[in-house]
């Protein structure tokens, strides 16, 4: 099945591509941020800093 997008195909394709790009950037940012925070918690844990509850700093479900 071929899809014909007519004379304004570039506008349609750009719209979907931009939406995909922004969503990928959002997901990437959240994943990288999670890795960064857990890495920092691990470093704090290694240096002996623990939470008041005496749990490990990296004790994140």
């Amino acid at each position: 099945m071929t899809m014909s997008l007519g004379p304004y195909a570039s506008f349609i394709v750009t719209s979907y591509a931009a939406a995909a790009l922004v969503v990928v950037i959002l997901i990437g940012w959240i994943v990288l941020d999670y890795r960064s925070q857990t890495q920092r918690l691990r470093e704090l844990d290694r240096s002996g800093v623990t939470r008041r509850s005496s749990r490990s700093a990296v004790d994140t479900p």
Binding site: D33, Y34, Q37, L41, L44, V49, R51, T60
Partner: peptide, 18 residues
């Protein structure tokens, strides 16, 4: 993103404690 923000605040409070 909320999970990340909770972890960020946990990092901040631990750094202040350190």
């Amino acid at each position: 993103a909320m999970r990340n923000e909770i972890l960020r605040r946990r990092v901040r409070s631990l750094q202040m404690m350190q």
